[in-house]
């Protein structure tokens, strides 16, 4: 079984992004970019399935600018077998990304797709479910545990009420949550090896994908700032303040 894994290039999770004063977006110049943290977990899970003999090949895919090769190389260094960059200078939104993955599933005859539960830049959390809809296959979202059996998987999903377990037939789309695994560290020799692994570059047109109707972002602004607070000196003072505010 071949596994496709999504690897999105996003602003590193430690960066406190700044909104541009003219409202045209967030300042990205010189900002550290990384693999979306949920995608790192997705890659790790795919590698573990391959190592357990449940999968034969792990193919990592990024849709984005040429610079996303960097993140694909990171995934290759983790152990993925090959990479596909679907180059698009314009950022693609979830439905378009899902269309790309749908084409690649068909082209690669993949048996499983593992994506992150959300990209930490747009915080959309849509692509896996949209892809499953387009493929007419099962989705298992917010996965914290997966187990591959012959033609199905048992997945534990993190839901509001706790943990929900479902069985899904393959092919399926899984979205990875934080507690699915702890991604491995990449070692220097792996980075050297990754340089020799195959990376294909395709365009949306090569795959016959038309960009989908999208959300037009007309303005970006900083959130309303919270009025700065103050420190109190003691537990007594805190309780008094909260009682004054009618909160206790």
């Amino acid at each position: 079984m071949k596994i496709l894994v999504g690897v999105k290039r996003v602003v590193d999770y430690n960066v406190r992004v700044q909104v541009k004063p003219d409202g045209s977006g967030v300042a990205l110049d010189g900002v550290k970019m990384s693999v979306n943290p949920f995608d790192e977990i997705a890659v790790e899970e795919a590698l573990r399935l391959r190592e357990a003999g449940k999968a034969t090949e792990v193919v990592v895919v990024s849709i984005g600018p040429v610079a996303a090769q960097e993140q694909l190389r990171t995934a290759l260094a983790m152990g993925a077998d090959r990479a596909i960059l679907v180059e698009s200078a314009e950022a693609c939104q979830s439905l378009t990304v899902a269309r790309v993955f749908a084409k690649l599933v068909e082209k690669e005859q993949a048996g499983l797709v593992i994506l992150g539960k959300q990209a930490i830049d747009d915080d959309a959390g849509q692509t896996p479910q949209m892809l499953a809809a387009l493929l007419g296959c099962a989705q298992a979202s917010y996965a914290s545990k997966v187990e591959v059996n012959d033609n199905s998987m048992r997945v534990t999903q993190e839901v509001d009420a706790g943990l929900q377990t479902i069985d899904v037939d393959l092919p399926a789309v899984i979205s990875a949550d934080l507690r699915l695994n702890e991604p491995r560290y990449v070692k220097l020799p792996d980075i050297m090896k990754a340089k020799k692994k195959p990376m294909d570059t395709l365009s949306l047109a090569d795959l016959g994908v038309e960009p989908a109707a999208a959300l037009k972002v007309v303005k970006t602004e900083a959130p309303a700032a919270r009025g700065g607070g103050r420190k109190v000196a003691s537990a007594e003072e805190l309780v008094k303040e909260l009682k004054n505010k009618g909160l206790l």
């Binding site: 602003v11 406190r16 992004v17 909104v19 977006g25 967030v26 930490i120 830049d121 747009d122 915080d123 109707a213 999208a214 959300l215 037009k216 972002v217 007309v218 303005k219 970006t220 602004e221 900083a222 959130p223």
Partner: peptide, 18 residues
């Protein structure tokens, strides 16, 4: 809607007439 963990709020228009 919020993006970047709520650090950038975007105004979006849904294109098309779907």
């Amino acid at each position: 809607r919020p993006t970047y963990a709520g650090n950038a709020i975007v105004t979006v228009e849904v294109a098309g007439d779907g």
